[in-house]
Write a protein that binds this DNA or RNA. Structure first.
Lengths: 226, 226
DNA sequence: TATTGCGGGATTGTTCAACAATCGCTAGTT
DNA sequence: AACTAGCGATTGTTGAACAATCCCGCAATA
């Protein structure tokens, strides 16, 4: 059935006891989107989803606003909200932005010997996930690595921007069939990057990061064309 | 009367004929906040503002979401929404972020000889505003200058991030009594920066920009302490 | 005096039902 | 085939209602 995710949504209905209703709805939808149950361009009908989750249209709309803010859905006036679909330009722009944020984070780390524990922890997390062939988990670890990398800039707003970017990256990955292909090659890259930073070799780290991002971008673009 | 801005809001009620109601409400409130009529920490009562603008609570709430997304207001659960109040840390973080975005824009411009017309247009706009002593207009021109500067990065997401940052900057300026002090000194700085970029002297431009931002940050922080 | 606990009023959070505005599609016309 | 009118479905917006929560004053207590 095409509407299989509706039942998946209903299963999330249990965990909605506390906090703001709209946030819980947003959580549920976010999970469905990231897990790939809700494909890009899918229209999110207020009526059906409201019924599935047992919330009113108003609350649902607030949730849509939250997801729109995270760029996971787009709202088209008088037409509804749709799961966001990223094109090649989006991916190129995402990586352009990532280069800016992550390179400047490394440069900041070069100035003030930052704390690299989070970074190494993310590497370890990735190693553990790969060891048990949990490729989705490896993907998350990868995200954590880059989140930790951006955190070296020591700026709340950089953190926030990076989280935003990574959420959009998940949107891209959600459409890919084989997570391993897109995450496993970068485990070693992360390890090397962390090592270079630990060694204080920031120039080399910057170069490595740029090659890393170039490669990832090219791979994603190629996969999107196919 | 303390509630003078209520009538100012009502005057905006006329211009609300087209487009989404919530966006219009957000526009009206945004103006009031930026103009300084709504001071930081002011609580935005759903009842009173809804009545003043003639919209329902639900629509008003959607508008609050939009403004929250722009970080002009903060929503506190079960307590209401308040005009955002920035502290010293916020200002420091804003400038940290601006350095990252604007420096990388200049570096990008160094790689691909970007189009500088918007930049020069913003300089001219500032000159014209200063000539007639329109200091608020000079402030806007200043924003446009840095928006144009960030645009050199050639990234939609950088543009968006910069707009976000500048909106927060307006929030700071809205609390300042004398706009001239905070905008006039930078007219010459903008002119020089544009000239350096036109001349292709990007290294010097980068240094000038950093001094520029350091000075602006220090001046704002000093003003906030007073 | 300071603090704790307890109303009670005011405000926000959420739901519901209704209507207006708009869109997309289909059928009919030329 | 193209174009238009109309219709059904969906979103946009409203208003009212109720529940949940917070704020503030007041009394009781130590």
């Amino acid at each position: 059935m095409v509407d299989d995710w509706i039942s998946a949504l209903e299963s999330e209905r249990a965990s909605m006891g506390r906090a703001s209703a709209s946030e819980k709805v947003a959580d549920a939808l976010r999970t469905r989107i990231i897990e790939g149950d809700l494909r890009p361009r899918t229209r999110l009908s207020e009526e059906r989803i409201g019924a599935a989750l047992g919330v009113s249209r108003n609350t649902l709309r607030e949730a849509f606003h939250l997801l729109g803010h995270e760029r996971l859905v787009v709202r088209e006036f008088n037409r509804g909200v749709f799961v966001r679909a990223l094109d090649h330009d989006d991916v190129r722009d995402l990586y352009r932005f990532r280069r800016i944020l992550e390179v400047s984070s490394i440069r900041q780390a070069a100035l003030d010997g930052s704390d690299l524990t989070r970074l190494h922890a993310a590497v370890d997390e990735g190693g553990a996930a790969a060891a048990v062939e949990d490729w989705r988990g490896l993907g998350s670890a990868n995200m954590h690595f880059h989140e930790a990398l951006a955190a070296l800039a020591g700026s709340r707003r950089v953190d926030e921007a990076m989280r935003q970017v990574l959420a959009e990256m998940r949107l891209v990955f959600s459409t890919m069939s084989d997570p391993r292909t897109f995450h496993e090659p970068y485990l070693e890259g992360n390890r090397q990057l962390a090592a270079l930073l630990s060694a204080g070799n920031h120039d080399e780290a910057e170069r490595a990061l740029l090659t890393y991002l170039d490669r990832a971008e090219a791979q994603l673009l190629a996969a999107m064309s196919a």
